[in-house]
Write a protein that binds this DNA or RNA. Structure first.
Lengths: 216, 216
DNA sequence: GCGGCTATCGGCCTTTTGGACGATGCCAGG
DNA sequence: CCTGGCATCGTCCAAAAGGCCGATAGCCGC
């Protein structure tokens, strides 16, 4: 998995690569290792291992997928930045819902790039981040701009939304949150207003589109 | 980057690589081209281009992502097999909903592998398929086994489901399909029974999980 | 301390949903 | 020709959802 390389004169920037798809990891590692100034020093296929690998290798930059088993990418970004405020993290992902993007950036990611990026652009992005710059994929930036109308859900609204998206009825939500059905309706009403919808099914659609919940 | 290798005696199996993620394409191409007996002869980032590329290059095997813009992967498999009943297609994808798997196989795919496969296993899979074998990823096979209870939705039920998942109310669905609200309820009732649910929100969850609809 | 946001709850009322009886016509397969 | 699946539509009714009128209490910031 890791590529031990004892012969190089340590001038190469050290990269930690985190993605749950072995195939993509191998592919990206190949690309990066072909660059004279970059080297993948460790790989991980989930968030927990990513943190361990970070501690062991102290990479100059971490390329990280969101959507992983064991630990969410955003959470990984947050924790990396907690233990090392200098940590440079590039988020490399397939999806570009406005919520995920803004959460990743808020957590301290230096760049947000999509997997449809060209190999050349990725290595340029890595160099930019190493040089202290930031980079947001155009598509992601556009989504963010849309979401200027950023909805800010309260904790209870989020909890309600999650149960809603799980197909629960008001009564079930009430039981799960240990509140009255009346209060559930109250949260729902606020939710509907913030999402600009009028029914629960619509709410599910919009919330999913914005990345507020996932139906997997 | 690629190593043009004029010295080999053209014995290499020719691979067409189709995926909308440039990064993964480059990575997989690297992996494949490092094999002595395999060579990527063309790439495409969408279904239409894939068909064109197939006609031009007549590859020995096509490695194909489902979920692409312009043309769905399953449709591509179907058309490839139409124009060349010998076409060998390996589906390489992130997702493993039972509906997508069974549709891809029904369309004539020889193999279904997930992107978390190891590079080595992928090339082995390619060789297997070239040798006339088939391969289903264990996770995918398991999902298929679950779905032995394969739900078969009628066209009207599918149409209703799609509108439902789009957040439409019964009245709106009725208008869209130009039928009475009563009939919509009838379709919904059948839908609920087939999906083993009791509400529309639950139906959305299960249908999404099974890959019957997508909320993007 | 007041205004605003949050969370909680109540009643009342309309609309929507979903279940339970139904029914008809069509069409394909045995 | 008959059976079974499909699509269509009806009525009745109970439950759920959602809108509209509230209310109280805590907490935070200015």
């Amino acid at each position: 998995m890791a590529t031990p390389d004892a012969s190089t004169p340590a001038a190469k920037a050290r990269v930690l690569l985190v993605d749950d798809h072995a195939l993509l990891r191998t592919g990206v590692a190949n690309i990066i290792n072909q660059e004279p100034d970059l080297r993948v020093v460790a790989e991980a296929d989930n968030g927990r291992d990513a943190l361990d690998a970070y501690d062991r290798h102290k990479p100059d930059v971490t390329v990280l997928d969101l959507r992983m088993p064991v630990m969410e990418g955003v959470e990984v970004v947050r924790r990396l930045r907690e233990r090392d405020s200098q940590a440079r993290v590039i988020v490399l992902t397939t999806y570009d819902t406005d919520d995920e993007i803004s959460q990743a950036l808020k957590a301290g990611a230096k760049a947000y790039v999509l997997k449809d990026i060209a190999a050349e652009d990725l290595v340029n992005c890595i160099r930019d981040v190493l040089a202290g710059k930031t980079y947001i994929a155009p598509a992601a930036a556009a989504k963010l701009a849309e979401g200027v109308t950023r909805v800010q859900l309260t904790p209870r609204e989020m909890a309600t939304l999650r149960l809603l998206a799980d197909g629960k009825a008001n009564k079930e939500i009430a039981n799960a949150l240990d509140i009255s059905e009346r209060t559930v309706k109250s949260h729902l009403a606020h939710l509907f207003e913030k999402l600009a919808v009028t029914s629960r099914t619509e709410a599910i659609k919009i919330a999913t589109r914005r990345g507020l919940v996932r139906l997997d």
